[in-house]
Nucleic acid binder design. Structure first.
Lengths: 334, 334
DNA sequence: TTACGGTGATTAAACGATTACTCAAGGCGA
DNA sequence: TCGCCTTGAGTAATCGTTTAATCACCGTAA
């Protein structure tokens, strides 16, 4: 069994209050006693038990991490970053999965409160707003969603993506999103459109409406595909490769988030990475401030970084433009 | 602020003991009082606070989940399954990442103990053995590693993979692993070799020794590649596609673990999936038993399931065997 | 000699829930 | 009528830690 304050006190013939004082640096204790106590604490490997402390101080040293879908492939990096940042600040992390269900999300929050979580870091379900929480909370969503505390600059990421392709000479882009309701994806697409030069055309596809035939799109004139997620970029990439379309020679492909596989495929996937350590550190930092009674810190927007890999390259100099393509291009530039 | 036992007691003019008795169903309480209390509890939305309960009963209702690498792409499904199973049993889950470092693993364990975790589910660092833990623990590793409590039948998974390809007519396989030190990967490779028919040849590559040129392997006669992870299978698949090798027409590719992307690529990746919900449920169940003082339950081996997708198909009937290939095949069948 | 201030450490209360023990009241049989 | 058992509920201790309040002691100045 773990040693208690009482055990140390008994062995040293002092009171538990003195031990506590030494450990916390408060109160008045002689140097000699301080030394003796420290030594004994080390010797027995004493660590204050969380239950007693939490009960007395109301601080459990734990916060909750509520996610809409742990199985999202982006989550590992995120959870790891949060856990690391939390551990650095001396906090433990309690996880919960809301399965994208607002009711489950609420339930998870209640359970965390019951477990004594001091605060929570929450990535809200798509479409739900988090507010009036009975607990200090840090919300990680997108810059455009109200209540957001920290997030990547998805809009700038979108701009970076389009700019990158435009500089490579691409003039016909296909943008692929999953769901219109996702504010993150909307921000990214919005950024892409904002960076679009007037002589560049972009078509948008939402996968919730059905999957496009990527090879056909390329044959119809698209030279680059940007997906709002590496997962969908990967789908596009493998579809193209399977159909005999060379990447990046005939078409470039880009994604978002730099998933674990993105660097491991051939060609490597050019993507816009979120700075997870930075976001997590900021989230934990903000939470710590809130717990110390500070006012809600201003929302923080963390830049995204372009990870240049092999899936993007110069736009092909089409040797045989079809009449169809010419007509389309005429539409745009007119 | 959340209501306390005292608040309810005061409002009803009874003692806190009675409330507690009603909530726990113990002790003697009249039906009338029971009704009144239940009603008030619902009305105020009272939930017993974890700190006080943990202190008194020694049970926090929380256990730890210690992983060697949260960012492993297999983790999301696993964490989700554990969290779901735990929530079903009324437990919370505290996570920690050992970053593959045995020292950090030990440290994480100490922190969990300090936080009051009742037990832990641990996926040990590669090469480390977990034992003599000061806490009830469930170890998820591989069947061949001592101390293991639950795991997938990696060996049978390997056998299934090879059998599948053999039935499709493949006679030259390439097996790809990452690290010899991983007992999971060793088990899988071991299973593959065990299922090998005498007229089938298999070459093993370990990626820790360097990455092979998959296209060259196919040109040299290999008709199927089995990787011990979907991540490496994906690398192989995209390399082949990029080099103009048609999958599965010219070569089949298989992986393990059914990662999130495996169903989203083209062709879909045939893979052997772990039954994460089952493993997680068993782990949590075993842990619950241990916490109830039961003796350590027998280790449980959960079957793996073949997920048939487009990346595997009949072995190509090579119309133009090169002399080199004939020589190689001669070697094998002789 | 007395009063006082500083030092070092103890005492005891508090946090919230659980639970063994006690207690009062009423019913019932002897 | 007395004693005993049952019922329903309250009392108080306990878990481990923190912390405000208190106390004993000693040196020093009045």
């Amino acid at each position: 069994m773990q040693p208690k304050l009482k055990d140390i006190a008994r062995e040293l013939g002092v009171s538990t209050a003195t031990i506590s004082n030494v450990l916390s640096g408060k109160g008045r204790v002689s140097d000699e006693t301080r030394r003796l106590v420290s030594e004994k604490v080390r010797e027995l490997g004493y660590r204050p038990g969380g239950a007693g402390r939490a009960l007395r101080t109301g601080r459990s040293g734990v916060f909750g991490l509520v996610l809409p879908d742990i199985s999202n492939p982006l989550f590992p990096a995120f959870a790891q970053a949060i856990e690391t940042a939390a551990a650095r600040s001396g906090y433990g992390v309690l996880i919960a999965d809301s399965h994208g269900d607002p009711a489950a999300q609420t339930d998870a929050l209640l359970r965390m409160i019951q477990r004594g979580a001091e605060g929570i870091v929450i990535v809200p379900c798509r479409g739900t707003q988090v507010r009036d929480l009975p607990l200090p909370a840090v919300v990680i969503d997108s810059a455009s969603s109200p209540g957001n505390s920290v997030c990547s600059d998805h809009h700038a990421g979108g701009r970076l993506a389009v700019t990158h392709l435009q500089e490579l000479g691409h003039r016909r882009l296909t943008l692929v999103g999953q769901s219109r309701r996702s504010s993150v994806q909307s921000d990214r697409i919005g950024g892409m459109l904002a960076a679009l030069r007037s002589d560049v055309r972009a078509d948008i596809f939402w996968l919730e409406d059905g999957a496009p035939d990527f090879a056909a799109l390329v044959h119809a004139g698209t030279t680059a595909i940007i997906a709002t997620s590496d997962l969908h970029a990967l789908t596009a990439l493998t579809c193209l490769q399977g159909a005999g379309v060379a990447v990046p020679e005939q078409a470039s492909v880009m994604g978002f988030d730099d998933h674990s596989f993105s660097a491991r495929i051939s060609p490597g996937l050019t993507t816009l990475a979120q700075n997870m350590p930075e976001i997590a550190a900021t989230a934990v930092e903000h939470l710590a401030e809130l717990l110390d009674g500070a006012p809600r810190p201003a929302a923080r927007i963390v830049p995204m970084a372009l990870r240049l890999r092999g899936s993007t390259g110069p736009a092909p100099t089409d040797p045989h433009p079809t009449p169809y393509q010419e007509a389309q291009q005429g539409d745009v530039t007119s």
